[in-house]
Design a protein around this nucleic acid. Structure first.
Lengths: 205, 205
DNA sequence: TTGGAAAATTAAACACTGTTCAATTATATT
DNA sequence: AATATAATTGAACAGTGTTTAATTTTCCAA
C-alpha cells in the first residue's frame, strides 16, 4: 500500500538528518566539541531520539568515517585509467595526501580518532572493511609493481604498509600540529615537498 | 633560614605528586578517562588545588609529554657513540620505534594527542621545544649523511620530515589501531618488518 | 604567646557531557 | 472510536573541566 514504505523512508530520512547535522557540526567544531545535544538541537529533536537510530556516539562517527572513505574512493576512481602500476602508485599517494590535507577533519576521523574503530571492535563481524578495501587497492598496485620487476627483495605486505605509513605520517603530523618545528620557510608546503622526496626514493627502488 | 626553602620544596613536592598521580592514571586508563577529580582523589586533595599548580588539564599533560621526551632522549643517548651517520640514522629509527611501541600512551601524548600542543600554543613563546630539539637531532644526522655523499638530489628539510613521517606513520597507525586489516600473520610484527623495508630503501639512496 | 596577615585548601556551584528509561504523544489498525 | 504500536520526550544519573568565595592552616612580628 506504499504507506509502510513511506514510513520506512521517513525513518531513513531522520537517520540521514542526524548524520547530516553531525557532519556539519563535526566539520565546524571537531569531534570532541560535537555533542549529542548539539546534534539534537540542530535537527530540532530531543537528544534521546538519536539513540533510536544509533547505538551510541561512536556509531554516528563510524557512519561519518564511512562517508569519508566513499569520498576518498571517488577521488581514487581516476586511478583505473593509469595502466602503469608505478605511475598509478605515485598518483595514489598524491590523491591520498591531497584528500587528507583538504579534508583534515574527515581524515582525522578515518585514520586517527578512535571512535570509528572502537565501534568496529564492538560488533560481531569486527572487521574494518573500509580500511581493508582501501589498503587492498594499495597492496594490489604494489604487487603489480613487483610483478614488473620493481621493489626487488621487498616483501609485499611490509612494503605496502611502509608506503602507507609514510603518507599517513606526513598528513597526520600536519593535522595534529607537529610541523611547526620545521624551518618557517618550509612549513607551508612540507607535506608536498616531502612527498616529492618520497617519489624520488621510489624511483630508485 | 631554610624555612622558606623547605616551603618551596614542599610546594614542588605537591606539584610532583600531582604529576605522578596524573601519569599513573593516564598510563592505566588513557587521556580521556583521566579526570581532574580522579587525580585529586589519587593524591587525597580536593580538585580545586590542582589549579594552583597547573593552569589547566592541558598544562598537566604537557608536563607529562615532556617527561616522555626526556625518557626518549635518554634512549637516544647511545647514538653519540655511533660515528657513521648512516648507522646512526638507522639506530635512531630503531630506538624511535621501540620507544613508541613500548610506551604507546606516552608516544600518543607526544605525537598524536592535541592537549600538549594546544598548551604550547597558548603560551607567549609558543615554541614546541621538545619536538624541536628531537627533530634537530634527526636533521643533523641526515645532514651528516648528505655531507658524506648520501641522499644526493634530496633537500635536507623535506627528506628529514619524510623519514620522521615514515616511522611516525608506522607507530601511530599501530597505536590508533589501524593495522588489523593486514594479513593476520603479519599484524604482530608489521612495524618492525616494515622498518626493515625502510632500511633497505635508505641503503639504495 | 598571641594577633593578624598571607598562603594553602576546600566546598559548592556552573555549564557542560553521554546515556538510559519511564512517561507521553502521535500514528496505524481493527 | 478504541486499542495497539511506534515515535518522541523530559527528566534523571553519574560524570566532566573550571571558577570562586569561604574556610582552614601556616607564618611571623610584636
Amino acid at each position: 500500500m506504499g504507506l509502510v514504505e513511506r514510513k520506512i523512508r521517513e525513518k531513513e530520512e531522520l537517520k540521514d538528518s542526524i548524520l547530516k547535522a553531525a557532519k556539519k557540526l563535526f566539520l565546524e567544531r571537531g569531534f570532541e566539541k560535537t555533542s549529542i545535544r548539539n546534534i539534537a538541537d540542530e535537527i530540532e529533536y530531543s537528544p534521546g531520539i538519536i539513540y533510536h537510530y544509533f547505538k551510541d556516539k561512536n556509531e554516528i562517527f563510524h557512519a561519518l568515517h564511512t562517508e569519508g572513505f566513499q569520498e576518498m574512493g571517488k577521488r581514487m576512481g581516476i586511478l583505473s585509467a593509469i595502466v602503469d602500476p608505478m605511475s598509478r602508485l605515485r598518483a595514489m599517494g598524491k590523491i591520498y595526501i591531497e584528500f587528507g590535507l583538504e579534508n583534515q577533519d574527515m581524515y582525522d576521523l578515518m585514520f586517527i580518532i578512535e571512535a570509528p574503530i572502537d565501534h568496529v571492535e564492538t560488533r560481531d563481524d569486527l572487521c574494518w572493511s573500509e580500511g581493508d578495501s582501501s589498503f587492498n587497492q594499495l597492496r594490489l598496485t604494489v604487487k603489480e609493481c613487483m610483478q614488473k620487476g620493481h621493489f626487488q627483495g621487498h616483501r609485499l605486505e611490509a612494503l605496502s604498509f611502509m608506503i602507507w605509513s609514510t603518507v599517513h605520517g606526513m598528513v597526520s603530523l600536519k593535522i595534529r600540529k607537529r610541523v611547526n618545528i620545521l624551518e618557517v620557510s618550509e612549513v607551508e608546503n612540507i607535506v608536498e615537498n616531502s612527498y616529492q622526496s618520497f617519489l624520488m626514493v621510489l624511483d630508485k627502488l
